[in-house]
Design a protein around this nucleic acid. Structure first.
Lengths: 221, 221
DNA sequence: CAGTCACATGACCACCTGGTCATATTGTAT
DNA sequence: ATACAATATGACCAGGTGGTCATGTGACTG
């Protein structure tokens, strides 16, 4: 948590600091992020920085907290319908919302990506200890319920697939921003559609292609 | 390219240096890798290091080159059957071989992973310029041929899927080493089997689940 | 023996890092 | 005007970085 001094700051100055920090942490992974560059960009002195934050990590964790809150506002509508809607539809909406968040907040997306790749580094476990929700556990739960409802084959590898579903979210965002376009438009929705359709075929009951309703008949080897 | 001095070294000393470098570059991404730690570990002086290599980058690129060669020896058998075998079978063998490489060469695998996550950093483009083959282009070609042969639906997103197939290779390795086991055994093969089966359902002609033969009938939305 | 060449060495360089702290400036309440 | 606390500041610190270079060592050659 930043010190009181930081929250007492006039809003525009506080914003400047946050903006500068976002730029820095989006540009390079945590270990390479430089406090010196942040203060230079924010137009404050090094001394002031440490009046605002206990450490570089303090600032970083604060940004992650803000990021979590911001992302939730995107995902909330999809979550609201979690119980009433088909698994793949829910998945589609979650992905679309997540991608929209990434597109409209590219710096947050970059930070998240760096973090995802920072496993085995000290900062990562401190972030987890800080209580960051693990996406994978969430997807696992979702998948499990979908199997119970017969919307997903019962012989899928629950662990593997929930892991992949979490990672794929970030992957598709990267793919789309790098190869297609950096704006949130129909093309992104089309990509999501195709991807969910792929998942539906891969995970759903046999012959569950496209938007046909699930059927509970199993088909083993 | 390392200097001649390096290649003139007695083999055991050369090995020491390479071992130390592998340890370092596997432990932390390129930017954080320390020449000082490498020389300490290798038991040579800083001065000697720069008699062997033009720079830290020189050493790093050399390791990548060795890695490429080593990985090829794993993949070669799978490649040999590229023209004669079903797309998903080939994919299965490539994945299995790639994962075996990763399991038996964990430091190479770690380096590769760091690199995969180092896009947007200066070293990455220098690696690409150095001529590293892009996995994605390869998968794209593979997928295209599979479509022509009717082993894959013609309406799949070629770009997206080839991108994902490249990334998923690394992802599955990460998943398996982190969550299942760090040895190459039947469990890894089982994971690959399940994953390929998932792809077969997701990508193949409708009702192409499990090991049934491909059918050429198209099925659009 | 001297000469030459390949290699080994660690002190040293400029530069950067996260973090500290004595001091100066400001705002506010009396 | 005075006092007091909150905030701003940049020189400074110890420790790291990649890279250099004068000097030294040892082996081979004439």
């Amino acid at each position: 948590m930043p010190k009181d001094t930081f929250f007492n700051l006039p809003e525009d100055k506080r914003t400047q600091v946050i903006e500068a920090a976002l730029d820095e942490f989006a540009a390079v992974p945590y270990a390479q992020a430089s406090v010196n560059r942040i203060v230079a960009r924010a137009g404050i002195s090094k001394g002031s920085f440490y009046q605002y934050f206990h450490s570089k990590e303090d600032l970083f964790l604060y940004l992650l907290e803000r990021m979590g809150e911001e992302k939730m506002t995107y995902l909330a509508p999809a979550f609201a319908q979690a119980e009433t809607v088909d698994f793949f539809t829910l998945l589609h909406d979650l992905y679309a919302a997540g991608l929209r968040f990434g597109m409209e907040n590219p710096r947050y997306a970059a930070i998240g990506e760096h973090l995802l790749r920072a496993r085995n580094t000290p900062i990562y476990e401190r972030v987890l200890r800080g209580g960051a929700a693990t996406t994978q556990a969430f997807f696992r739960d979702l998948l499990y319920k979908a199997i119970e409802r017969g919307q997903v084959r019962s012989d899928v590898d629950l662990d593997l697939m929930s892991y992949l579903m979490g990672e794929l979210n970030a992957l598709i965002l990267t793919y789309h921003t790098e190869r297609v376009a950096a704006t949130y438009d129909d093309r992104l929705l089309a990509t999501v559609d195709r991807f969910i359709d792929f998942l539906r075929r891969g995970l759903g009951p046999t012959s569950n292609a496209s938007h046909s309703l699930p059927q509970n008949k199993e088909n083993k080897a």
